[in-house]
Each structure stands twice: as C-alpha cells, then as structure tokens.
Amino acid sequence: MTQQSTGTPPISAEVRAELVEIGARYPQARSGLLPMLHLVQSVQGRVTAEGIEACAEVLGLSTAEVSGVATFYTMYKRRPVGDYHVGVCTNTLCAVMGGDEIFERLKDHLDVGNDETTEHVDGLKDITLEHVECNAACDYAPVVMVNWEFMDHQTPESAVQLVDDLRQGNEVRSTRGPRICTFRQAERVLAGFPDGLADEGPSAGIPSLNGLQLAQLNGWGPPPGRAGSDADRAEAVADQGRAAAQATAEDGQEGAVATEASPAGTKHEDAPGTGGEAK
C-alpha cells in the first residue's frame, strides 16, 4: 500500500482489514494489539484517538483498555513523529563513550529538546530527536538509531552530518542494514508486514566478528562432533560464501565485512565424524 510520510490519513477500510489480519495471526486476537498499534503509527505517524478506537473496535475492547496499553510502551508516540526518528543511546556505556556529547550536539544543531520534532521547513524532512535506552549494540558504541536502524560508531560530527543528510533527503544507509526508510515504513515492518529489505546490509559488523576471526586465525574451534564437525561446517559455509562473494565481487559494500572471515590458514585437525550416529 502507498504511504504518506506526513499528515494524518484516516484509518481506511483497508487498514481495518489489516488490523483484523494481524489479530488472526494469534490464537487470541488481543495478542495482536502491539503490532496493531505499530500499524496505526505506520499510517498516521503516531497513535491517534482514531487509531485507538479502531483497535478497540476490532478487538472488542474499550478505548481505555487500548489507551492503557498504548501509553505503557515508549515506541508509541502521542505526538506526530517526523519522517525520521533519531534516537541517541545515552545509557551508561554509550553515554560514557560519547553518547551524551552526541545528544547535546544534536539538540543544539536541530534546535529541539528531547522527544521534540524539528520545525517544519518546506523542502526539508522532519526529524524527531530522542535519547533512547540501551539498544543492544554496546560493542558498536556510541550508537545512534534512525527509525530503529543501527548507525554504529558515531561521533558528534558524524551525527551532525547524519541528521543534515536526513533533513536534505540524501540517501543514508544503516551501517548494518538497508537505506533508511521513513518512520512510517519502519512501523509497518514492525506490524508484521515485511518490506523485502531483509537481504540488505551485511551479515554482521566488524565487532560482532572479532572473536570469530581470532578463532579462525588461531585454528580454534569446538571439539569435533558426531555429525560432521563444526570445523567442517565452518569450512563448507566458507566455500559457499566465497563462491557467493565472487559472484557478486563488484558489490563492495556488502562484501566488505564478510571477506575477512575464514582465512585460508584456518586449520582444524578434527576428523570428520561421518559415522558415529550411535551414542
């Protein structure tokens, strides 16, 4: 479906049908309420009274019950979110590593406070700035999230450049994901409607691979197992990966992280445990 990135289009019959569809994924439809509220945000950019009523109607709940849920979770916004939600991690680890300074710089640069949206200027995209709690990427600190995509290893300067690019509508890619989509498109994925972008981005960023690469350089691995060792597994996958990497050699961006893996020197003495199914 087409999506507006601003404004408040109504909860159409089509959207209502999708709300019902979400509920039908579960043994009990009410389990779908969180994804349903994500869907409301994907259409209207926030949780509106109309959206709450629609969810309540579909689930046979009171609007108070739905409001009670919507107000509990921080990802649901009562005020309109801009085209891009920029979340700066200021939990302890990221804060200490520079998140606090990044957040201060962005507030100053965008002239907004926490959980506020830039004043709309024709021709520019709107940004909502917020400090967020730990986003499970501490080994990439300091981390900034844009519409809940990772922007790893930020500095105050890179963060300013990031929001400037977003405002101008320049292409911005997540460091471990696709080109940044709008807040509303992101919310639609969270509602359980895939956008076909799962294949974008690398398998992992460099910090995620540090231990694996050290193990490969030293020939370290688990002991041999009975159904073919994990060493075999790693090597088989490596071969496959190398073939795939060659097939798309020109695609530099994606391959960048993966190519370092499985160095040729990796040695395992593990005998392939071909038989040995019996225990």
């Binding site: 398998s203 995620s208 691979l209 694996l212 996958v237 490596a238 990966g241």
Partner: peptide, 10 residues
C-alpha cells in the same frame, strides 16, 4: 557465531 562472517549467512 560460526557462520556470522559468511556472506548472506542469514
């Protein structure tokens, strides 16, 4: 983490 370095490991 054995597969994480592989292209299209997902």
């Amino acid at each position: 983490s054995a597969d994480w370095g592989e292209k299209r490991s997902w």
